[in-house]
Nucleic acid binder design. Structure first.
Lengths: 332, 332
DNA sequence: CTGAAAGCGCTAACAT
DNA sequence: ATGTTAGCGCTTTCAG
C-alpha cells in the first residue's frame, strides 16, 4: 500500500498540517518534530501525491507539448529546447505526438486540458485551429510554436521566419543561375509551407520570373515520400534545374532518387534542403540546407508560455531568422 | 473560470451524482434529464477534471516513459512504438528524456510516481538501478526497455538481443576476412554495450582470435563524438581493418573522419553500424547496419507494462532478434 | 431513477 | 509552533 501523509502524521503523533509544512518548508517547525517527521518520511520512502496537491493548488507545474510529427529533425530539436527550459524552470512536460492527425490533435488538447496542465505549447497539424478559442477564451494559456494561424485569438506564437527561409533559399538558387526551381513539400494548409512558398514566389518575381504552380510537388514527409515526389516532379515537368526541399527526410529521398536516375547533383539538378540533419556532410555531394534555430524556438516557446501563464494579457509574436549552411549540393 | 460538475448540476437542477452518471454512462438516467444535462455540458464546453477523477479512482490511465537520449534513431522509434500502443489502449504517455543523467533519472521516477502514473517504462542510463526496488517492492509496475540490470527485482523487461547483435556483426566482418576489428561505443556500464561486447568476444574466439581491450574505444553519442573516437582509435592502434559502431550518430561521425583522412571504405577499413538511419543508403558507400526492431520493442514494452499493471505477479523477459541490412560499407 | 454525503490526499486559512 | 478543518472536483456507496 502507498503510504500517505496521514500515515506519517499518525506515526509521528502530529497533524498532517505539520507534516505538510516540513515537506514544503512553508512554516517553521520545531527542530525536534522536524527531525522525527523527516525520519519517518525516509523510513517509508514517502512521496507526496502530486495529484492531490495539484487538485488542491490548482496548479500542476506541468505543461503540455503537442507536436505533429516526430522523426523530423526540426521537431526533435524543438522538443529538446522546450524540455531543457522546462526543466530549468521546474516544469514537467507532457509530450504528445499527433502524427499529423487533426482529429487526434483536438482530442489531445482536450485531454491535456482535463489534466490541468498549466498551459500548452502546440505545433498544429493544420491551420484549422479555431477550436482553440474554446480554451483560450477562458484564458487557458496556449502558445503556438513553429506553425500558426491567426484564427486562434489570444495566442502568442514563436516560429521561424518561414517567408525569409523560402526567399533566401530560392534567392541562392537564382543567384546560381537557376530559373526553373522545383519545390517539394509535405504539409499543405499550414503556415510554414505557405510562408516559405510566398518567399519562393517573391524571390522569383525579384528576378522577373513567373511562378509556376506546376513546379510544386506535394509528398509524404518520409524518405520514400521524397523519392516519389522527386520522381513525379521530374516526370511532370521539363527543364527543372534545382529542387528546394522543405523536409529533411524528403531531402534524403530526393537525393536517393536523383542518384538512382543517374542525375548529377548539382550539375544536372541542384538541391537545397530544409533542416540540417546529421549526415548532411558525408553525403555525396554534401548537402546545402537552410535551417531554423529549432532549439531556440523551443526554448523561447516555453518562455513565452510561462509569460502567458503569469500574465494572461501577454501577447507577442516572435519570429526567428533562418541561416544557410552552404555545402556542395547547391553548386557552391 | 473553469466550469465544474457542480455548475452543471446546479444549472440542470440535478445532483452531481447524476451528472457523473451521464458522463460516464455508469447508470441509467431518464431520457429527459440526460438530454438536458448533455445540452448544458455542450453549452459550456465542460470537460471533467481528470486530476480530481484520478485522485478519486486511484488510476490515471497514463504511463511514464523514461528514456536516456533522444536524437538517437533507436530510441525515437521505440518511443513511437510505445506511443502507438498506448494510444490504442486509451493510455496517455508522459515522456521524459533524462539525457543520460543518472541523477535526473531517479528524480524523474520519483516525480512520475508521485503523479500517480499507473506504471513506468524505463530505459535506464546505467546499470545502477537498485533504487527501483523502493518502488517495485510496493508492487508499483515498472518495466525495463532496451537496457536492464538484474539488480532490479520484480521487473519484467523487453530488449533487443544484444549478444546476438554483437555476435552477428562481428561474425560478418570476420567472414569477410577481417581479424582486427575496432569497436566504438558510447555508453559504458550498460547491458546493451556489455552484451554486444560479449557477442563480439565470442565471435572472435570462434575464429580463435584474441580479444584486444585496445580495440575498444569509448566516445560521446554524437557525430562529433564519433569523429573523435575514430581518430583516437586509429592513432592508438595499428592494423585495424574494420570498425563496428554501436550508435547511429557515431557511425556518421566515424565515416566523416575516415573520409577526412582519405581512408577508403570498405577497402581500407570496413564499417558496420548499429541502427539504421534514414540516409544510410545515400552515403558513399551506403552503410551496412545491424538493427533491432525498435518499434516492436516499444510496443511490446507497453503490452508488458499493461500485463504488469493488471497482474502484479507478471514476470517475463523478452528478447527480440536483430537483423542485418547489408550495403557496401562492410565490403559486401 | 435520483440524491445525499463521504472521501481520495493534500494545502492553507484560522484558531489556539 | 502546532492543530483543526474546510475544501479542491470528482466517484460511489447507500437510501429513498
Amino acid at each position: 500500500m502507498k503510504v500517505t501523509m496521514k500515515d506519517i502524521a499518525r506515526e509521528a503523533n502530529v497533524s498532517t498540517a505539520t507534516v505538510s509544512h516540513v515537506i514544503n518548508g512553508t512554516k517553521q517547525i520545531s527542530e525536534e518534530k522536524h527531525k522525527k517527521i523527516t525520519a519517518i518520511i525516509n523510513k517509508y520512502n514517502y512521496l507526496p501525491n502530486s495529484t492531490a496537491k495539484n487538485l488542491r493548488k490548482n496548479k500542476t507545474m506541468t505543461a503540455g507539448l503537442v507536436v505533429s510529427s516526430f522523426p523530423d529533425s526540426f521537431i526533435t530539436e524543438m522538443v529538446y529546447g522546450v524540455e531543457e527550459r522546462a526543466r530549468e524552470m521546474g516544469y514537467q512536460i507532457l509530450l504528445v505526438n499527433t502524427n499529423e492527425n487533426k482529429y487526434y490533435e483536438e482530442e489531445t488538447i482536450n485531454l491535456l486540458y482535463s489534466k490541468m496542465v498549466d498551459g500548452i505549447i502546440l505545433s498544429p497539424t493544420s491551420s484549422d485551429i479555431g477550436y482553440l478559442n474554446k480554451y483560450t477564451n477562458d484564458n487557458f494559456p496556449v502558445v503556438l510554436a513553429n506553425r500558426y494561424d491567426p484564427i486562434a485569438e489570444n495566442v502568442p506564437r514563436v516560429t521561424g521566419d518561414n517567408y525569409q527561409t523560402g526567399y533566401d533559399a530560392t534567392m541562392h538558387l537564382l543567384d546560381h543561375g537557376h530559373e526553373n526551381i522545383g519545390v517539394i513539400y509535405a504539409v499543405p494548409n499550414v503556415s510554414t509551407t505557405r510562408d516559405r512558398l510566398n518567399g519562393y514566389k517573391d524571390a522569383l518575381s525579384k528576378y522577373h520570373l513567373p511562378f509556376l504552380e506546376d513546379n510544386l510537388e506535394l509528398g509524404y514527409a518520409t524518405v520514400k515520400g521524397g523519392e516519389n515526389a522527386a520522381k513525379s516532379l521530374l516526370e511532370r515537368t521539363v527543364g527543372i534545374t534545382a529542387i528546394f526541399s522543405l523536409n529533411d527526410l524528403m531531402t534524403i529521398g530526393i537525393i536517393s532518387k536523383l542518384k538512382e536516375l543517374s542525375i548529377k547533383i548539382p550539375e544536372d539538378i541542384a538541391v537545397i534542403g530544409f533542416g540540417d540533419f546529421a549526415s548532411a556532410n558525408i553525403i555525396n555531394p554534401p548537402v546545402t540546407n537552410i535551417v531554423q534555430p529549432s532549439e531556440t524556438i523551443g526554448k523561447t516557446a516555453f518562455d513565452t508560455l510561462l509569460s502567458k501563464i503569469n500574465n494572461p494579457e501577454y501577447m507577442k509574436h516572435i519570429e526567428l531568422p533562418p541561416s544557410m549552411i552552404l555545402r556542395k549540393s547547391c553548386g557552391c
